[in-house]
Design a protein around this nucleic acid. Structure first.
Length: 349
DNA sequence: TTGTGTTTTATTGCCTCC
DNA sequence: GGAGGCAATAAAACACAA
C-alpha cells in the first residue's frame, strides 16, 4: 500500500490544526471554506456540465439529469428546494448559540449525495484508530422536532428556514424516540415499514441513488414513523413496484424504496459537511445521538466525503483544463464558470 | 443473465499533531 | 501513545448495456 502520500501532498492544516476535535476551540473555530462551496445552485447549471461522466459528478454539478417524463429534479422544484434555502432571519435567532452556523452558511442549497438504501455496517471492527462501537448507538435524542430537520416535519413547520439553524437540541425528539425508531436493546429497527403511499407524487429518479423520498412528498410529518427495516431487502414490494422506464408523467410511480433514516442521516451529514468539512467533537457527538450513528461512523463518513470531494475536484479540474484547451483554439474566454477553485487545496494549507 | 461501471461504507497502513 | 488525517482498497448494492 502506498502511503507515500506526501509526494502529492494535500495539507489540511488550516482546519485540522484548529484542534477541532479537542472541544476546546469548539465550533466557533469552524471556518467556512468557500472553496468547498464553489458550486452555488443555478437553475441552468446543467448545461454547463455536459461532460459529467458519472452520477456522482452530475450530482455534484448540481443537477440530476431530468428527462421530463422520467425523473424529478428536486433542485428545480420550488416546492422542494425551499427546504434548502439559506437560513432566514428567523433562523439566525434560533442559531445564535452557534455563530459558526449562523454566519458561515452562505450556501443556498444542500447538495444531497446520492442515496443508497443499503445499510451494510459491520458490527465490529478493530481498527487501531478508534475504539468505538458501531452498534448499537445510543438512543437518539434531540430537541423540539420543530427545531430539528430530522424530525421530518421540518419543511411544513419551517418552510423558509435553513436546516442548519435547527441544530440545538435540549429535549428528546419524539420522532427519534426509541419506541418507534431504534431499539437500542436490539440492533434492529422495530417498526415495520408502512404500506407504500398510494397518493405518492408521480416521481421517478433516474439514478439508483435518488434524493431522499421525504423530499418528494409535501407532508413528511410521519416521516420518522415510517421507518423501514434496515435489513429490508432490495427486492421488497416497494422496490418491485417501482416502475422503470415509465414515459408517462401522469402515471403514478412508486417512489423507490428508501430507508428514511438513511436519507435523513445523509441529509444531515451533507448539511454538516456544507458547514464544515471537518466535524468537530461536539458536533460529532450531537450527530451521533441524533442520527443514531456511532461517532466512528460519522468520522468515517466525513473522511469518505472529503475523499469524494477531492475526487470530484480533480475531475472538475480535468474538465476545466480540457475546456480551456479547447477554448484556446477558439478564444481566451474562461470556460469553467468559476466551478473549479484554483485555491481549493491552498485553502487547506 | 451476465459483465461492467458507479457509489457508498468500512478497513488498513502510515503520517502528523498534541 | 492516542486520535484523526489521508490514500488505497475491499465489499456490497445497484444500474445499465450487451
Amino acid at each position: 500500500m502506498n502511503n507515500n502520500n506526501n509526494n502529492n501532498n494535500i495539507h489540511y492544516s488550516s482546519t485540522m490544526s484548529n484542534d477541532h476535535e479537542t472541544g476546546t476551540s469548539g465550533e466557533s473555530l469552524r471556518m467556512f471554506d468557500p472553496s468547498y462551496h464553489p458550486y452555488p445552485p443555478q437553475a441552468n447549471i446543467y448545461s454547463d456540465y455536459p461532460n459529467a461522466t458519472s452520477k456522482i459528478e452530475a450530482f455534484d454539478y448540481n443537477y440530476w439529469p431530468t428527462p421530463a417524463t422520467t425523473t424529478h429534479n428536486i433542485l428545480t422544484n420550488p416546492t422542494i428546494t425551499v427546504l434548502d434555502q439559506t437560513q432566514s432571519s428567523s433562523s439566525s435567532s434560533s442559531s445564535s448559540s452557534n455563530p459558526t452556523i449562523e454566519t458561515l452558511v452562505p450556501v443556498s442549497s444542500v447538495q444531497l449525495s446520492q442515496l443508497n438504501t443499503s445499510a451494510t455496517i459491520s458490527a465490529t471492527h478493530h481498527h487501531h484508530h478508534i475504539h468505538q462501537h458501531l452498534y448499537p448507538p445510543s438512543p437518539p435524542t434531540c430537541n423540539d422536532p420543530s427545531t430539528w430537520l430530522g424530525s421530518g416535519n421540518y419543511q411544513s413547520l419551517h418552510p423558509t428556514t435553513n436546516p442548519s439553524s435547527y441544530r440545538h437540541y435540549t429535549t428528546p425528539c419524539p420522532f427519534y424516540s426509541s419506541n418507534n425508531f431504534y431499539d437500542s436493546s436490539q440492533p434492529q429497527w422495530t417498526q415495520p415499514p408502512p404500506p407504500p403511499p398510494q397518493t405518492a407524487i408521480p416521481i421517478k429518479f433516474e439514478s439508483s441513488y435518488s434524493p431522499p423520498s421525504y423530499f418528494e412528498r409535501s407532508n413528511h410529518i410521519n416521516h420518522c414513523q415510517e421507518q423501514i427495516s434496515k435489513d429490508e431487502p432490495s427486492n421488497s414490494p416497494q422496490h418491485i413496484n417501482w416502475l422503470k422506464n415509465d414515459s408517462s408523467s401522469t402515471q403514478l410511480i412508486q417512489i423507490p424504496p428508501k430507508n428514511p433514516l438513511n436519507d435523513q442521516q445523509r441529509y444531515e451529514l451533507e448539511n454538516e459537511f456544507i458547514i464544515s468539512k471537518y466535524i468537530s467533537i461536539p458536533r460529532k457527538s450531537a450527530l451521533s445521538l441524533t442520527l443514531s450513528l456511532s461517532e466512528r461512523q460519522i468520522k468515517i463518513w466525513f473522511q469518505n466525503r472529503r475523499a469524494k470531494e477531492r475526487k470530484l475536484n480533480k475531475k472538475r479540474q480535468e474538465i476545466s483544463s480540457t475546456r480551456q484547451l479547447n477554448n484556446s483554439n477558439d478564444g481566451d474566454s474562461p470556460s469553467d464558470g468559476g466551478l473549479e477553485s484554483p485555491n481549493y487545496y491552498q485553502n487547506y494549507a
